[in-house]
Simulated scan of single mutants.
Amino acid sequence: MLDTRRNIALACSLSALAGYIDGIGFLHLGGLFVSFMSGNSTRMGVSLAEANWLNAANALVLIVLFVAGAAAGSLIVLGRGAYRQTWLLVAEAALLAAAALFHHVGYSASAIAAIVLAMGLENAVFQIEGGAGLGLTYVTGALVKVGQLVATALTGGGRWAWVPNLLLWAALVAGSTCGALAYHWLNLAAVWFAAALALALGVAMAGAGRA
């Protein structure tokens, strides 16, 4: 999937978007994540061990919402309609805009729920029939690929095949840095910028004739 410049650019843009949102969510939730469910799963396990039932329940709710978003995204891209990826990004933009509006009227919990659904949704952008697609809101798999492809390069394989996965990681780090800075400036209202980016990417994909 990271086989063309267009796909690499789109994937890195979406990874940066996810990092931006996760930086905001991490600060707002005091250590929980809105897109990194491995981290939330670990926090849930630790909270259960410490009998901190409220923290464990909060982590579980985030995980369930993320899975629901991923399922909704898959239903969109595996459907038969035209411009499925575009509609998925428009749906993500709508959820992020709704989150910003919820925050504006004082419903922060609803804002977080909309954000987590949007992050789950995003992971279906590169999904193909019968496959899991490309994870965009977490980069553990990308870093594993970097290591594997570096080893391949050292043993005579493609010299630069590892670079796209490293760029995916770097995009998420850059996005999370910007998200943290934006949160200190605007709180959850910073999500408006992410909504605008998701919408712009959806429009760009429609213009490029993507399915």
Rank of each mutant, 00 (worst) to 15 (best):
A151V: 10
A71L: 14
V191E: 06
M205C: 12
V139R: 06
A190V: 07
M1F: 09
A113N: 09
F102S: 13
A114W: 00
N165V: 03
A51L: 12
T4M: 12
G130E: 15
L65R: 11
G202N: 14
I112H: 00
A180W: 04
A170K: 04
V150K: 06
Q85H: 12
L186C: 06
A94V: 13
I63L: 08
A161L: 08
V125H: 11
L136A: 05
G31N: 11
A18Y: 13
Y83H: 12
F126D: 12
L10E: 10
A171K: 11
A9C: 15
I24E: 04
A82C: 08
V105R: 05
V146M: 12
T155P: 05
G23E: 05
G106V: 07
I128C: 12
S110G: 06
A208Y: 14
T86K: 09
N40D: 14
V150H: 05
L10V: 15
L65A: 08
M119S: 11
T140E: 15
A18N: 14
T155G: 09
A97S: 11
M205D: 11
T86V: 13
A56Y: 05
Q85T: 11
V144D: 11
L186A: 12
V116W: 11
F26W: 13
H103Q: 09
M1C: 04
A111K: 03
L62C: 01
V105I: 09
A11T: 02
H104P: 02
A16K: 14
R5P: 09
L27C: 08
L2A: 01
F193R: 06
A109S: 13
S15T: 13
V77I: 01
F33L: 07
L78E: 14
A194K: 08
T177E: 07
L134T: 07
A194Y: 10
L121D: 02
E122I: 00
R80I: 01
E122D: 12
L48C: 02
S176V: 00
F102W: 01
S108T: 11
G81F: 12
A71S: 09
V146E: 11
A142Q: 03
L181A: 12
S13V: 05
R84N: 10
L95K: 08
L188A: 03
L101H: 13
V146G: 03
F36H: 14
L48V: 02
L2T: 04
A51D: 12
N55I: 03
G120V: 02
S108M: 05
A142F: 00
F193H: 07
L181G: 05
P164H: 01
I63A: 09
R43W: 11
V61D: 04
A68M: 13
A59H: 06
V139C: 04
W160R: 00
L2R: 02
G131H: 15
T152D: 14
F66A: 01
I112R: 00
V163T: 05
L172N: 08
L95Q: 06
A57R: 09
V191C: 06
A200S: 15
G156T: 00
A51G: 06
A109E: 14
E122L: 00
G79D: 02
T4N: 03
